[in-house]
Amino acid sequence: MANLILLKEVGEAMNKAAIDAFPNECCGFFFGHEVGEDRVVQEVMPVENSKEGDQRRRFSIDPKAYMDAEKHALAMDMSLLGVYHSHPSHPAIPSEHDLKQAMPWFSYIILSVEKEAVKNTTSWQLDEARKFKNETLKQL
């Protein structure tokens, strides 16, 4: 299985977004390049959680924010590699809802966060059978 490599500032930006949003879920996109089998994440784009209702348990991203992310990737000559979101006071394991909405190819980063710190970060990708497989996540 390929590695997903996060630059230090990228990991820090995701952690900060998760802590700042607590007890709500944060969400956003990340960009970078594929290097052989690996993916190197170079930039993070926090996005407003547009879920109407309980944002402690759900997140949603506005379609126009998605369009902006695709445009940004093209403008910066990077790939839109995936989506991150936090699980406040819950493990960094994808839920049924995460699975149902997932797209092929994207990496899905999940941060398990408590009030003052991120406890664990994982990344997942759909396989051919539409099941999540854990990606190896490396933080530089």
Partner: peptide, 30 residues
């Protein structure tokens, strides 16, 4: 414009129309 607020699949297009396919991005702990 979201075609759900136009005429969905039957929405007429022009020669220079740009159509975007957008995956719904959502999830959460439950």
């Amino acid at each position: 414009e979201d075609i759900n607020f136009l005429q969905k699949g039957a929405t007429p297009i022009e020669a220079n129309s740009i159509i975007s396919i957008i995956p719904a991005i959502a999830g959460g702990i439950v």
